[in-house]
Structure formats: structure tokens, C-alpha cells
Simulated scan of single mutants.
Amino acid sequence: MYTWLVFIHVVSAMVSIGPFFVLMPMLRKLPAAEGDRLEAYLDSFTFVVRLSKHTGHVLVASGLLLMWIGGYPWTTPWIFGTFVVLFASLLFMARAFSPTIRRLRQPGHDRTALVRKLSRSLYLYLFVLFVMLGLMVMKPALW
């Protein structure tokens, strides 16, 4: 059972992080996109954010089960650190992507500024995800 949970945990981490890399080339094309192409790019961003959110639920649930079955306490440094970063990333994600994508769909917006904000949010969120991934993989003794 533990091995399957590790597998589910790893796959959900891959599915949670991987699709964000598909968005990078779209960021370069987004400023000049019009009409249906703009909608397709924004729909892709929305899909990736939703996918990441839902696979994040699987990731957290499987992680909690792994903690429970494996006997890891909450005070384990890499677990505690990961949860601190996780809660910070949840607050960040709630404010970073969806409102910006919504504003890009509205007429009369400053597309350059919004694409720059979306780009900054994407790279910052990937950094946060890699910090969590690093904590999970390397399991550092933070204290």
C-alpha cells in the first residue's frame, strides 16, 4: 500500500508541475494574440491552473496518508517546511492567475502589463513548486 501511495504522490506532483511548462511558449505569443487565438491561450492557462489545483488535492491527500502510514510527525523539518511553503503557495495561487486571466478577457485592458504580471506569477509559482519538490526529495534537516 505504501509503495502505491508513493507512486500516486509522485505522479500527482508531476501532473501538478508539468503543465506549467507548456504555458511558457504561450506567454511570448499572448501579447500579439487576438480573437480565438487569445481565447485558446487564456483557456489553456485556466485549464492548467485548474488541473494543478485538483492534482494538488491528490498530492496533499496522498502526502498526509504517507505521513500517517510512515509514522512521520508534523515536526519533521522537511514536512513542516513543505506545509509552510504549501500554504503560502495556496494564497499566492488564489490571487496570481485567475484574476489576471479574467482581466485579460475583458476589453480595454493593458495587455502588456497583465502579460508581464502573468509571466512573473508563472515563474514565481514554478519556483515555489520546485522549493516544495526539493524539500520532499532531499528531505533536508532544516533544524
Rank of each mutant, 00 (worst) to 15 (best):
R50A: 12
T46H: 12
G18Q: 06
G71I: 06
R111L: 01
K53R: 14
T75S: 15
V85M: 11
Y41E: 04
M14Q: 04
L42W: 04
Y123E: 05
S62G: 06
F80L: 14
P77H: 12
W68N: 04
Y125G: 08
G81M: 09
F21T: 02
L64A: 14
F47D: 07
V15F: 11
P140Q: 13
P107S: 11
E34G: 02
T82F: 12
F7A: 15
S16F: 09
M14N: 01
A113K: 13
V6F: 09
L27S: 07
P77M: 10
G70N: 13
F92L: 09
F20V: 00
G70V: 11
G81H: 09
V84C: 08
G134P: 00
G70T: 12
T75L: 08
K53M: 10
L133S: 12
F92W: 13
L66N: 11
G35W: 06
L122S: 08
T3M: 13
A96C: 04
R95M: 10
L65T: 14
L51S: 08
T3W: 12
H109W: 00
R102M: 07
W68Q: 11
R37A: 09
S52N: 13
A94R: 15
D110M: 03
S12Y: 09
F21Q: 05
Y41D: 03
L104F: 02
F7V: 15
R50C: 02
T3D: 15
I17T: 07
V11P: 02
L27V: 08
L38Q: 14
R28I: 00
S98L: 10
L65W: 11
R120Y: 07
L124K: 02
K139C: 05
R50D: 12
R116C: 00
M132P: 00
R28Y: 09
M1W: 09
L86Y: 14
L5T: 09
I101A: 07
P140D: 13
I8S: 12
R50V: 04
G70L: 12
G70M: 11
F45S: 02
R105G: 02
V137E: 08
A88C: 08
K117P: 00
A32C: 00
W78K: 11
S62I: 03
L59D: 04
E39G: 00
V128Y: 08
I69P: 03
L91R: 13
H109F: 03
F47Q: 11
F47T: 11
R28L: 09
L129W: 03
V10M: 14
P77Y: 09
K29P: 00
V58P: 00
E34R: 15
M93R: 09
V128A: 15
F130C: 01
F97R: 06
A61M: 13
R111D: 01
M26G: 15
A113G: 01
A141R: 14
M93Q: 13
L104E: 05
S44M: 11
